[in-house]
């Protein structure tokens, strides 16, 4: 198992290099640079000075090599647009909010979604099942900005006195509830449906019949024999979803005015702030890669067959 983890960690290196490379190439496809936008009227000499300073005149492979070196020494370089600010500063100041938001949304999605899916499967085709799956389908279908707007409207404005949730910000725990729910609802619905499906399938397996033939209590059959196997696909899906929640929360951050990293990402792309876009892309890629690594490890714990195939 340890060997497997070490090897997986080792393999993340080339993946990160490739991610940096492609981001690099893509950014270079975009015409112009931050100092040559039409809106600004910067004298030619200053433009050249700036390009010199940030190494934009170097051949691409030199720029790439410098950048890779920076990433591995944990220095993502200066922002090209925000004067006197490093990408590291931006990450340090704004990333924790995004991480927390994504983490809370994930927690909500798992803690509510999995039991809901389980209950639906165990009471398949009952009223409870139909109700839960109806709301899961709805929750899965409506976009998060609409969920966010509805949550704000009802729980912060309409019944704000009762619930006491603020409409925006990321300070008190109350302020964190609505954004986390809005972001987590879709994945929650997804986990519920996925768990229900895999659980129903698992309950049909021969080894469940064996467990019954052994006289085991139903509770144990569900908890030990069925749940574990049902969670394997859920865990597989959880990695990418966690990455998506941490990286894909721009809209929610925007609606709730949360000072997360998403806003910087968007402004950096439109402002062609190469170093910020690159830095954030690399960071978020690493997060997704790590989330998948965790998934693989969990997968090995849940399913002994894969564990052996890999060590």
């Amino acid at each position: 198992m340890t060997a497997f983890i070490v090897r997986r960690l080792f393999w993340t290196l080339p993946v990160i290099l490739i991610v940096i490379f492609f981001t690099f190439v893509l950014m270079r496809q975009i015409e112009g640079n931050p100092f040559r936008t039409s809106e600004r009227n910067v004298p030619e000499s200053i433009q050249q000075n700036l390009e010199e300073k940030f190494g934009l005149n170097d051949p691409w492979y030199v720029q790439y090599a410098k950048y890779v070196k920076g990433v591995f020494t944990l220095d993502l370089g200066p922002s090209l647009v925000l004067r006197g600010r490093d990408v590291n500063d931006i990450v340090r100041e704004h990333f924790p909010e995004s991480l927390e938001l994504g983490g809370l949304a994930m927690l909500f999605a798992l803690v509510v979604g999995i039991p809901l899916g389980m209950l639906s499967a165990l009471r398949a085709n009952s009223f409870l099942d139909y109700t839960a799956m109806f709301f899961s389908n709805v929750g899965f279908a409506i976009p998060s900005f609409l969920v966010a707007t509805l949550l704000i409207y009802f729980f912060a404005l309409q019944w704000g006195d009762v619930f006491g949730f603020p409409t925006s910000g990321w300070t008190t725990w109350q302020s964190k509830v609505l954004p986390s729910l809005a972001l987590g609802l879709g994945p929650m619905a997804y986990f519920a449906r996925l768990t229900r499906g895999t659980m129903l399938e698992t309950l049909q397996q021969d080894y469940i019949r064996t467990a019954k033939a052994k006289g085991l209590r139903w509770r144990r059959i569900v908890a030990v024999h069925a749940l574990r196997n049902s969670l394997i696909p859920v865990v597989t899906a959880a990695g990418p979803i966690l990455g998506f929640l941490i990286t894909g929360s721009f809209i929610i951050e925007q609606i709730f005015a949360i000072p997360g990293i998403g806003r910087y990402y968007v402004t950096a792309v439109t402002g062609r702030d190469y170093s910020v876009v690159m830095g954030l892309t690399v960071l978020l890629s690493i997060i997704v890669i790590l989330a998948n690594l965790v998934v693989d490890i969990l997968y090995g714990i849940l399913d002994p067959r894969t564990r052996e195939a890999r060590t």
């Binding site: 021969d206 080894y207 064996t210 033939a213 024999h225």
Partner: peptide, 16 residues
């Protein structure tokens, strides 16, 4: 009363 089944490949839980 105990019972054993036809297919030993699927009758045991693969994760235990």
């Amino acid at each position: 009363i105990a019972m054993i089944f036809q297919d030993p490949m699927t009758s045991l839980n693969p994760t235990l």
